[in-house]
Simulated assay, not measured.
Amino acid sequence: MKKLLLTLAAGALFFGAQAQISIMPKAGVSLASVASKSAGESSTSDMKTGFAFGVAAPISVSEQFSVQPELLYIQKGGEEKNNGLTTSATINYLEIPVMARAHFGGFYVGAGPYLGIALGGKAKIDDGSASIEADLNIGTDEAEDDVKPTDFGLYFGLGYGFEVGSGKLVLDARYGLGLSNTLPGGDSDNFNKNRNIAITVGYAIPLGQ
Results as ranks from 00 to 15, higher is better:
120 G>F: 14
25 P>H: 10
75 Q>A: 01
46 D>W: 15
187 D>N: 13
7 T>S: 06
130 A>H: 13
87 T>K: 15
83 N>L: 13
135 D>G: 11
170 V>E: 00
172 D>L: 06
104 F>Q: 06
119 L>C: 06
158 L>W: 13
184 P>Q: 00
6 L>E: 03
164 V>C: 00
27 A>D: 14
111 A>R: 15
101 R>M: 11
103 H>L: 14
2 K>C: 05
197 I>H: 04
41 E>P: 15
143 A>P: 09
151 D>T: 08
45 S>F: 08
105 G>P: 13
128 G>K: 05
98 V>S: 02
153 G>M: 06
55 V>N: 03
119 L>P: 05
188 S>C: 09
3 K>T: 15
114 Y>V: 09
172 D>S: 14
48 K>N: 09
6 L>I: 08
112 G>C: 02
25 P>A: 10
28 G>H: 11
130 A>K: 12
165 G>W: 14
199 I>A: 02
114 Y>W: 10
37 K>P: 09
145 D>N: 03
35 A>K: 15
78 G>M: 05
34 V>C: 09
103 H>D: 03
82 N>W: 04
79 E>S: 10
38 S>R: 12
44 T>R: 15
197 I>R: 07
124 K>D: 06
143 A>C: 14
166 S>C: 03
87 T>N: 08
113 P>M: 01
205 I>R: 11
26 K>R: 08
90 T>W: 03
35 A>R: 14
107 F>E: 01
190 N>K: 03
155 Y>Q: 14
177 L>D: 10
7 T>P: 13
182 T>V: 05
80 E>P: 06
67 V>F: 11
166 S>G: 07
143 A>E: 07
30 S>Q: 08
48 K>M: 10
178 G>D: 03
167 G>Q: 04
120 G>H: 12
106 G>P: 02
16 G>L: 02
188 S>D: 13
21 I>W: 12
172 D>F: 00
1 M>D: 04
147 V>M: 00
20 Q>S: 12
59 I>L: 02
14 F>L: 06
208 G>K: 11
63 E>V: 05
8 L>A: 13
117 I>E: 07
9 A>N: 12
33 S>I: 02
39 A>D: 07
198 A>P: 04
167 G>R: 04
126 D>S: 09
45 S>P: 07
139 G>H: 04
116 G>P: 10
81 K>R: 07
115 L>M: 11
119 L>D: 01
157 G>V: 00
114 Y>D: 00
95 E>T: 00
183 L>T: 00
23 I>R: 01
80 E>D: 05
123 A>K: 07
108 Y>D: 10
37 K>I: 01
53 F>V: 02
14 F>M: 06
125 I>L: 11
55 V>T: 08
52 A>T: 06
144 E>S: 12
92 N>K: 13
110 G>R: 02
124 K>E: 05
178 G>M: 01
30 S>V: 00
9 A>V: 01
112 G>A: 02
10 A>S: 15
62 S>Y: 12
101 R>S: 14
39 A>E: 09
39 A>Q: 07
98 V>H: 08
